Simulated assay, not measured.
Amino acid sequence: MPSEAALTNDAPLLLREDVATEMGGIARLTLNRPRQYNALSAGLMSALQAEIDSIAADPSVRAVIVEGAGRGFCAGHDLKELRAHSGDRDFFQAIFKQCSRLMTSITALPQPVIAKVHGIATAAGCQLVATCDLAVADEAAQFGTPGVNIGLFCSTPMVALSRAVPRKQAMEMLLTGDMVDAPEAQRLGLINRAVPAAALEEETLALARKVAGKSPLTLKIGKEAFYRQVEYGLVEAYAYAAQVMTTNMLARDAEEGIDAFIEKRKPQWQGR
């Protein structure tokens, strides 16, 4: 059976462009199935997983942008691929396990990940936006978990969505399948910024550059701590965070940052 890439004229399922900045690189990952609204096929998820794994081991990358080619960000899972395996429990378990591993890998990635969203971000595409650490969207972008409309509740997208937006609003999106526009998504906390289409590229890159200019060690420590502490109770969260701050305070970059602030100069990060 020919590979998915072969069936699409050998076009790569995922594109990568590295953008150099003064402090380090920004990896731009573009979902490249535009005719399918970048639906997350097994092949595309494998390609994205491979890049995430590579970036995790590459200290020269300071930030990551995930975006979609064509008219939309991501329409979720590839429904034609799912239907082609009708009744195959093993395939369904494997595909949803693969997606879950991909999402948790993004959360565990030391570098911050920014979703750059245009068009639609639905079902697992909405899950991907909710999973990314930050998100900037075109004002015309639409978000939703419409699985309920086709008899397939968005249970795995629910995990990320319910951790990004308030419970009642998450349930309304999941139970009705209604779409949410970018300004409302920003109000709910699903995205950070809703900007005019003409400003989407500039605003996303500006945010990525700002993040990339921070100490990579500090970002790694802080990102891991953020996602761990939100699962704890208040007392446990404070105890854990105090330990993290103690470890962070002993790092060379913390010493450098404090010295630079006192001396009114730009810090020189060493990542240690």
Rank of each mutant, 00 (worst) to 15 (best):
P2A: 06
T122D: 08
A140W: 02
S60V: 07
I262P: 05
G125K: 06
A69M: 05
V129M: 07
A208F: 06
K80S: 11
A141L: 03
I55V: 04
P166T: 11
F226M: 08
A6M: 02
G24V: 11
A50G: 06
T21R: 12
G213V: 09
E224T: 00
G271C: 08
L48K: 04
A242V: 08
F261V: 10
A182V: 03
L190C: 08
E256I: 15
V230E: 13
A20W: 00
P2Y: 00
A124Q: 15
V148Q: 10
M103R: 14
Q169S: 09
F91M: 09
T131A: 14
Y232W: 13
F96T: 15
T176I: 02
V230P: 10
V159L: 14
R265M: 05
I52S: 14
T104W: 10
S46C: 05
R16M: 11
A199T: 09
V117W: 00
K80A: 12
C132A: 09
Y37W: 10
L79G: 04
I221S: 10
Y227M: 02
G25L: 14
R187L: 11
L234M: 14
A69L: 02
K220H: 04
D10E: 15
E201Y: 01
N9I: 11
P110V: 07
L102F: 05
A239G: 03
T8V: 02
A260N: 12
E203N: 10
V195T: 06
H118S: 14
A164H: 12
L234D: 14
E201G: 01
L190W: 11
E81R: 01
D138C: 05
F261E: 13
A194C: 05
Q49F: 01
L250K: 15
S41L: 01
L29T: 04
T176G: 04
L205A: 00
G271V: 12
A260I: 06
P12C: 04
A212M: 06
D53M: 01
K220C: 03
C132I: 00
D259T: 15
A182C: 06
P34E: 02
P267D: 13
E255P: 00
Q93G: 09
I65C: 04
R33H: 03
Q268K: 14
T131K: 11
A170D: 03
M249Y: 06
I52D: 09
E22G: 01
L234S: 13
L48W: 01
G271S: 13
